[in-house]
Amino acid sequence: MKALSDERVSLAHGSGGTEMNELIKKLGLSFRGDWKGFDDDSASIKLENGEELFFTTDSYVVDPLFFGGGDIGKIAVCGTINDLLVQGANPLGISLSLVLEEGLPIKTLDKIMSSIRKVSEETKIPIVTGDTKVMEKNKVDKIIINTSGVGLGKTLNQELVVGDKIIISGGLGEHAVALLAKRFDYETSIVSDSKALVKELESIRSDIKLAKDITRGGLASILNDVAQKQSVGLLISEELIPAKKEVKRVTEILGIDLYSLACEGRLVCVANKDKAERVIEALRKFNKDAAVIGEVTQQDAGKVFLQTIISKRLLPTPSGRIVPRIC
């Protein structure tokens, strides 16, 4: 039997793993002009004055719309701000595009807009343009939000060398667990990590070589991307990776992989080993769980390894969809 889902788009194409990358390749959009960073968090182009202009876009669908610690509006704005920040940009402005389902209560929309407003005010990054469309009942699930953003700055992407430290800004899996808890009606004290990382980036930018925000595909996907693009090996250690006890328990109960889970306000960065301490110190002001989780290694170029309590194993790019186990 051959390629069951070849003919149509499947949900796996949207899970941020290998399927999505293959789909993007198939789209065949290869003309980029002078723009760089097509497959990074933001694309950039050099301006005549030497500065770089950054541009990014993202669409948001989430079920449920509201969850502990945030809602679709908050992640839509934070996500785009973070995509600009980690690439080295200072965000200038955001666009907001809404696709609404006929019959959506205005109250719901108000709630979403007020959290968008809040992020915009707190970060002082304005929403500068937008669009609204309404679709017939059942043609779209409540609301889809697209945000795009532009910023100015300098690309943050230095060459990694053996011994550089890999640093994470806080615990893994909190957003995913808050969402799953709401979906499956579990009681939990975990709230989404969704957050704009403006202050974090400001305080560490001069000390780091690169940064990535951990979104779809989770830590595993991001580290593999870094390892492949930079042709270095990465070794992280399970016991150093911060994750709340409750997060770990929920992932165990549901049988889902912590390293594939999305965050909405966490970043991974790499710093020279002499600067790692300073970076950690800065990040801990915002989240006490920030930690060095591993380092760049001599061997295994292009690959990520995980030191478990028992032995060392490969941490591959996630594939397929994240589905809870039934046994």
Binding site: G255, T308, I309, I310, S311, K312, R313, R325
Partner: peptide, 10 residues
Amino acid sequence: NTVMKYGLRE
């Protein structure tokens, strides 16, 4: 899954 997750075989 546990066997693979922790690299137990090795």
